[in-house]
Design a protein around this nucleic acid. Sequence first.
DNA 1: AATTAAATTGCAATCGATTGCGCATATAAA
DNA 2: TTTATATGCGCAATCGATTGCAATTTAATT
Lengths: 341, 341
Amino acid sequence: MEKHSETTIHDIARKLNIAASTVSRALNNNPIISEPTRKLIEKTAKEMGYRPNILAANFRTKRTNMIGVVLPLINRHFFSSVISGIEEVAYNRGFAVTISQTNDNFEKEEKIAQTLFSNRVDGLIVSIGMQTKTFDHLRLFSERKVPLVFFDRVVDEIEADKIVVDDYRGGFKATEHLIKQGGTRIAHIGGPLNVKIYQDRLAGFKDAMQKAGLPVDELMLIHNSLTRTDGTNAIKKLLQNKIKPDAIFCANDTTALSAIIYLRKKGIKVPDDILIVGFSNEPFSEVVTPSISTIRQPGFEMGKKAADLLIRQIKLKDKSNRFQTFVMPTELIVRDSSVRK
Amino acid sequence: MEKHSETTIHDIARKLNIAASTVSRALNNNPIISEPTRKLIEKTAKEMGYRPNILAANFRTKRTNMIGVVLPLINRHFFSSVISGIEEVAYNRGFAVTISQTNDNFEKEEKIAQTLFSNRVDGLIVSIGMQTKTFDHLRLFSERKVPLVFFDRVVDEIEADKIVVDDYRGGFKATEHLIKQGGTRIAHIGGPLNVKIYQDRLAGFKDAMQKAGLPVDELMLIHNSLTRTDGTNAIKKLLQNKIKPDAIFCANDTTALSAIIYLRKKGIKVPDDILIVGFSNEPFSEVVTPSISTIRQPGFEMGKKAADLLIRQIKLKDKSNRFQTFVMPTELIVRDSSVRK
DNA sequence: AATTAAATTGCAATCGATTGCGCATATAAA
DNA sequence: TTTATATGCGCAATCGATTGCAATTTAATT
């Protein structure tokens, strides 16, 4: 009795002299089973310590109740906020979430996508890496009708639901703010242009400059991978120009931080000599000195929305390919790094 | 031909007029299959676009090649370093990793553990939450012989492999350093004592004090959940004491940060008036002003070790319960918050 | 009471890969 | 040529739950 490891629905059925199918239906709350038998079966199942074999059920139903999340780095506040949002919705609706980080490495992203596909996740939520320029590993999903939602770093070439922040307006607002604070020679440290969000932030920057009648000097534009090191190199390069910037719009907080630290070391004062605005509202941006003005992105809400859209796709049998793109608002947070006292 | 969605080993077998079992063995590199047939099968499989149905294989073999990771917060540098370490090893050895965060919420931890167990992860790597005081949800694994490895916040009551940092020596070194820098009335903001690491950090603190002949005043000891808010409340309380501290050893960097910010607001200078040391070496501790002296924990290495131990358990058929505990070294990083100029 | 409709439950196939066991075929030894 | 010994492959059961359809029971209706 104790040895054959797990009790199955057949064990329950045998004990009660009924069919396994009845047990299955009862435990799945199929309304076709009468209340008394359901109660009896549930009671017996509990007594016998029954645990459904999810692997068997998954195999049979071809569903896993699992949502895959693929993103560059879980260690970014924005991304981990998104994850929390996804989890909140997913868990409440009976889905487990499996998270994988690509470290912005394309090969790893491919491999992860393959693995998740093979493991038959019911749907995938993705923010692509900086190196990602081809998308076959993601088309795999869309072509085989596996629900797919992009967020933040989305892929234009694939039709799917998308959730982005208003990077354009974020870039615009940040730049406008720098201009209001007196910036005239404004530089931009941006991300790789194959990633749409960085295109948009740049576009916002340029339009704000143009609107104010300020020139956009190519020497004032730098594009890199936005790491700490990249940021330091960028600010170094900017300081080597003949015309030095008096303000910088950084496409993330990390490079803003690099700039601030480097400038401090060089005795150049932020915000007195150079105004700085970052992007993303990383937690450190509030506590560093000077605190960094930045653009807040509603990560948690984006995550919730992404999960909601994905689950909607999963539940919807008819794959009516009406894909939508949601643009979430950004908010300028003014702190010390961009305001002269 | 094109319609029945996926090609199976039976399709391949039929096409080649061989048995499905041969196909299965060939694709699994079973040496019992001769080289020519293997080659042929592999070629045909590729041509037919065969993708193994992992759900079926998992079901049959009762294995998933999946490792579960449960931890409080992925958004902590230490934890995400551990995750990276785990992933590095796991992926190289053919395991997928599924990560879940408990937010230090006991109910969520329970639910996650249940889900992962039901989903038949091959093994589990856990760091428990602050509220976790009962362990049935984890015994589930150890009792059913599912490999289990604890790291950092381990559970003494369960026999398993464990990887901890040398919290005692970390606490000792931090305190010793504060004493060397001239601290005499040293306070400690610690975590909940049901979590072993905080016991150990406290013990290190006490022993260092005793060794230096300094008294440990109960009023100088505070225990909470080490959040930003908790940190602020703690420093407030300490300042209300008749005898004010001239140095504080904080059990994490977050509370150290809270203290620094609060003290700055109150016009109390760090390190001139109060010396501070944190714990964990969060990235912000380096960039905040003053930069926070802290104890570095080798998260990445711990993650690698944890995955290695777990996979070793998984591969080892005989569950010889020789469980080990590994203690990783800590390192004191001296920055500005603890050194008077 | 007989007939019909509705509500329950059972039968048995099925999902796709794995694997113990046994049957061939081939090679080596006698 | 016959008997051993590998070597390579096929047969068929199996894992546990799900589900279309058939069968049975119960309730409703005339």
